[in-house]
Computed example of a mutant assay.
Amino acid sequence: MRYKLIFIGFLGLLFISCKKKKVPEPEVPQTLQHGMLVLNEGLFQQNNSTLGWLNFSDNSYTSNFFEQKTDRSLGDTGNDLDVYGGKIYIIVNVSSTIEILDRYTGNSIHQISMIANGTPKQPRSIVFSGSKAYITCYDGFVDVLDTTSLSITARIPVGANPEGLAVSNGKLFVANSGGLNFPNVDSTLSVIDLGSNQEITRITVGKNPGSVQKDANGEIYVISRGDYAGIPSRMHRVNPNTNTLVQSFNFDAGGIYPFNNQFLISYHDFASGENEIALFDPNSESLINPQYISTAGIQTLYGIHYSSITHKIYCMDAKNYTVTGQIHVYSSSGIFETTYNVGLNPSKILIYD
């Protein structure tokens, strides 16, 4: 009887161990097509940012895409993801690195260490013009990256803790957030002449500026996020020819995202937890529809992406910031289609046809 009980106990342990066995991740494709890369920020100082791959053919998700391609982790707090020419650029803020991957395979090309005199630069956002990439760094500079040699060729001093940026009329417009000095934040937009790599002026746009976008006519739009309490988050329009603030809009706005020749305007109310997605027309300078997409089912709106490849709108949901995030997919007319479970705090995606 004793040996029978031991045998049964062994089978029980075997069953439990089998139940706990981790399901292997799907293998990443050799060539990237018919899917999307998802940048998940992870949690601050937890070193758990990920770059995942969602396969549209079977809706499978490979959370460790970057690890499978590089045999190392992505790092701490992935902030931006973009593609230019034949390369993918990933901005990893707390790790102070830029990861550069092959556009077609996802294989690693180069990693750039963003350290200046032993101090982390903390890169935030990236934009491109000609053969150069421009990266905002939280140490108060915009770095100029040569996209051929993959080397930093210049550092341009701007305001405190710069974030979003956009190029128009031969100039770079940079939002100086001053976020690390909260509540004593910055309120300016630096204007840099791209011919000389020199800041030529600063435009006051409102407290804590973050997102910056350019419309089809070259006009610059910037969000000033206020103090998340008494000072509301607002959108402003800047004339890139005269370098002046020409209009401020009296509606809540937390992010600006290109949508054909219009903008999708996002807003997350930190007090109530409510989310809004509006449709804005730069030609008429007005909201066409203040509730273009129903946000039912979205807990924490963390980013929006419109793809001209799939003609769909992708809304990133950070949930409560500590659990698996989701991407909710809508038609171009704002009709809900499906939801994908992805990684922790998804914020940016790249679509492949």
Results as ranks from 00 to 15, higher is better:
115 I>H: 07
37 L>W: 04
347 S>W: 05
54 L>R: 15
217 N>L: 11
144 V>E: 10
243 N>T: 02
343 G>D: 06
237 R>N: 08
286 S>Q: 09
304 I>R: 09
4 K>N: 11
291 Q>G: 09
60 S>C: 01
139 D>T: 01
73 S>K: 13
290 P>M: 06
151 S>D: 11
118 G>E: 08
266 S>D: 14
239 N>R: 12
228 Y>M: 08
349 I>L: 09
309 I>S: 12
10 F>M: 14
73 S>D: 06
300 T>C: 08
139 D>A: 01
199 E>L: 12
223 I>F: 00
165 L>H: 12
343 G>A: 12
153 T>S: 13
63 S>L: 14
13 L>M: 11
318 A>N: 02
177 S>Q: 00
281 D>M: 03
278 A>P: 02
287 L>R: 03
51 L>A: 04
55 N>C: 08
235 M>W: 05
296 A>E: 07
81 L>A: 08
116 A>D: 10
152 I>Y: 15
228 Y>I: 01
161 N>V: 07
306 Y>L: 07
109 I>G: 01
2 R>I: 15
7 F>W: 12
320 N>A: 03
298 I>M: 15
193 D>Q: 02
63 S>K: 15
194 L>S: 04
167 V>H: 03
111 Q>A: 05
289 N>R: 14
328 H>N: 15
100 I>E: 02
212 V>W: 09
237 R>V: 06
202 R>S: 08
177 S>D: 00
57 S>N: 14
171 K>G: 02
297 G>W: 09
213 Q>Y: 07
220 I>G: 10
178 G>P: 05
241 N>F: 12
130 G>D: 01
291 Q>M: 12
37 L>T: 10
103 R>E: 05
241 N>H: 11
119 T>S: 13
88 I>A: 06
211 S>W: 09
